[in-house]
Amino acid sequence: MSRRRSVVLAACTVLLGLGLAACGADAADPGETTQDGTRAVTIGALTISETAPLWAAVDAGVFAEHGLDVTVQPIQGGAQAMPALINGDVDLMIGQPFGALRATEQGLPVAIVAGYAESYPDGDDINAVVAGAGSDIVRPADLAGAKVAVNSLGAAGDLTIRAAVEQDGGDPAAIEFVEVAFPDAAAQLEAGNIDAAWVPEPFVSMITGAGGTKVVYPYQAVIPGLPTLVVQTTTQTVEQDPELVADVRAALADAFTWAEENDDAVRQSLVDNLEIPAEAAANLPLPRFTTAVDAATIEALADLGVQYEYFQEAPDVDAILAE
């Protein structure tokens, strides 16, 4: 995701995006049935590598088999897309679970209806805190007192890093976080402007390939298997259109099965839809795709948020998980 675009968007959404929320009151009902019997569904998805199976499966017609005419709407971030979800311009959205917790805490009617992607509970994870070449930061505790970049402050990245540092005996309050877009992190590390950065693949491989060191997999260290992305919609949709929710869930499950058997198509989608160079796409580590949500991990994330005062009060995870 381009930082520039996201900033322009951030600036614009503040006023314009909100305007949509007011104007879209009479938007079409989600999942309206068209003449040929299929239902039109718009799914908001970040333009990041994790969403490749969705793009690919839609193109391959997996969703059509379930009677769903899916339009994938690129979004720049969960929060930016939230007004569109609320007013019905987007029926479902693939976003980070932390965003859903945060939205619920602020009284927005959001529910998690399915899993999408998970980090790995062991082995190589798909995001990591990395330090630049020659850095003496080698373990989480060393991050105390360091300048650490995350793409977006006040979310799961910095939260799990704090917890990982504390777990390792460091002082989480001594970490100095700054926001740096993932694609800019490598250059900032090299320039010495930051000491470490939390990045997903392919940036982890790029930075370690250039001599950087992996300091910690914060998700794996704190909440093994924490979902990176989940499918969200409004509580209204969950209540009024359970059929749609069930259909999407089933279709997505099929999509993942299909994706596993058609890795080439997924990789091609990385190139076609997400503008990732072919060589990079071929070797890009992808997360585990599943529609199941491990409630315990979401529970743990909510608790962590309360512990580090990211949330004023504990979000009601049972209410958020609509399964």
Partner: peptide, 29 residues
């Protein structure tokens, strides 16, 4: 001033507004 705080930031009025927006703290935003 606002735009510059949307990059590599962790404080400032611009950062804070975007943060509120991202955190669904609408009244604060």
């Amino acid at each position: 001033m606002v735009i510059s705080e949307m990059f590599a930031s962790s404080s400032g009025l611009g950062y804070r507004i975007v943060y509120f927006q991202r955190s669904f703290m609408i009244a604060q935003m």
